[in-house]
Amino acid sequence: MDWFATIDIYCERTGPEFWAEPLNALSNLSFIFAAIWGWVEAQKRGRTDVVTVILIALATLIGVGSFLFHTFANAWSSLADVIPIWTFVALFVLVAIHRIGGIRSGRIGIGLAIMVGIVAILFAFGGDGGGSQTSDAATVSLDTLDQEASANSLLNGSEQYLPAVLALLAFAALSRRKGHPIAPWIAAATGIFMVSLTLRTLDLHLCEIWPLGTHFIWHILNGVMIALLFQGLIRSPVAKPG
């Protein structure tokens, strides 16, 4: 694999330049703002435990990693994008299971092993946080990717986020059934994620009529989603182990 081969899979990118995706790059500030708000609220409420701090740090790394991918746009920056995303997803799932469902720590360890396995499978089958695809060629053209999208996936790679969709739906149902205070936060985050995932899916398909694409809105809305998840987690009590 050529770690420095240019990856061009978004409407906004029209060349290999660093600032070829300004909206896709700068919209990652959404994750930074989510992390800052989470940190401020965690300090205010005395919820600066290790796990919460790690989640906030991971949200920051998501913004940084995605910024790197949408500026350098190559294989190594794709990893900088994907690793924080799936690490955040795996850790948040486990924390939510513990704090909402009241699952004991020992079972969380088993869950961690399962989540690591799932992430490994996602990597093995080429799934990544940015929907990136690598090539031995210097640049992957949008025309080629449009053809691949039509032939292989009308979802534009968004099917890789099915586990995240299922997890949010499960937590929304679980928290509502238990009457947990985090329920409205998760419900709002789930709704926003559905909208953002739809916009991510439409990005390449709308290039001809909307050259800027919709990927930058995916970033902004996902930052909002993470902010809501943080606020719900920080403001809610931890469920008693069952």
Rank of each mutant, 00 (worst) to 15 (best):
S158W: 01
G126A: 05
A137L: 08
A124C: 01
R176Y: 05
E12R: 01
R200N: 05
P84G: 00
L142Y: 03
A189Y: 04
S150W: 13
K44R: 15
G46C: 09
A80M: 01
G46S: 06
E148S: 12
W86L: 13
L61F: 13
A75V: 12
Q231G: 12
V119W: 00
L61P: 09
F230E: 04
G191F: 03
A183W: 02
I110Y: 11
L174G: 04
A57W: 06
T144N: 13
G130V: 01
M1L: 13
W3Y: 09
E208L: 10
L199A: 06
L166M: 14
A42P: 07
I36Y: 04
G127A: 14
L79E: 02
L61V: 01
R13I: 06
L169Y: 10
E208K: 09
Q43I: 06
A20W: 00
G129I: 00
D146Q: 12
W76P: 04
I234P: 07
S153A: 15
F18Q: 04
I54L: 13
A57Y: 05
E208N: 11
G46N: 10
V165T: 14
V238Y: 00
T144E: 15
L91M: 15
G46W: 02
F4K: 12
R13Y: 03
A75Q: 10
L212Y: 12
A183L: 02
A239T: 11
F123D: 00
I100W: 10
Q43L: 12
S141E: 10
I85R: 04
F216G: 08
F18H: 09
V89C: 13
R200W: 06
R177G: 09
V50S: 10
R45A: 07
I118L: 14
A75S: 05
W39G: 11
I182G: 05
K44H: 14
Q43H: 13
N156F: 15
S105R: 14
G101V: 04
L142A: 05
R176F: 08
M194H: 06
S158P: 00
S132L: 00
V165P: 07
A239K: 08
F230S: 06
A138K: 08
L228V: 03
N152D: 14
L58F: 03
V238A: 12
H180K: 10
S175N: 05
F72S: 08
D136C: 00
V95S: 11
T134F: 07
V64R: 05
Y10M: 04
I192F: 11
S30G: 10
T87R: 01
Q147C: 05
F72M: 09
H70V: 02
D8T: 07
P22G: 07
R13T: 06
I192R: 03
S30A: 15
A137V: 08
I217G: 02
D49L: 04
S105E: 12
T52N: 15
L122P: 00
L61Q: 12
L233I: 01
